[in-house]
Write a protein that binds this DNA or RNA. Structure first.
Length: 127
DNA sequence: CGTATGACCATGC
DNA sequence: GGCATGGCCATAC
């Protein structure tokens, strides 16, 4: 483990379940610290050369616009997991967006549970 | 130690 | 909806 910060980012990304996607910003928020969306992107990019074990499901991290950032390959991997995209390559974050890590796990590892209003979802009665 | 470089994001037009 | 701008901050050199 050469880069402690990246390791923490990978740790969080590994907790994004198949069939769901998280934005770079979300992951950054969970990791907290001085980590921003940009660093998350950097950490994912580093995976092109380094292949940590256990592997990191990098394909589940997309940009805030609901689109993949690295070409069609990434989109295909996600489609294999059941994530759907519009003809323009946009996915529905309301539907496939990650809810954040398990609060207990997050607390135990010093991560933030993710603050975005999950309350809103239930409040809107969506699903 | 200064500078450049991003798989980013929110905002404004 | 797209495009530009400023801010972000760890890494690499």
């Amino acid at each position: 483990m050469s880069h402690p910060l990246y390791q923490r980012i990978y740790e969080v990304v590994r907790h994004i379940p198949p069939g769901r996607v998280a934005t770079y910003g979300q992951v950054a928020q969970v990791v907290g610290s001085p980590v921003t969306a940009r660093e998350v992107g950097e950490a994912m990019a580093a995976l092109r050369d380094h292949h940590p074990d256990p592997p990191v499901p990098w394909q589940r991290v997309i940009n805030a616009q609901g689109k993949v950032s690295t070409g069609h390959q990434q989109q295909q991997l996600l489609e294999q997991e059941g994530v759907t995209f519009s003809p323009k390559g946009v996915t529905d974050l309301q539907r496939f967006g990650w809810h954040g890590p398990d609060p207990a796990w997050a607390a135990a590892h010093g991560f933030s549970p993710l603050r975005t209003g999950q309350a809103e979802e239930s409040q809107l009665g969506l699903f």
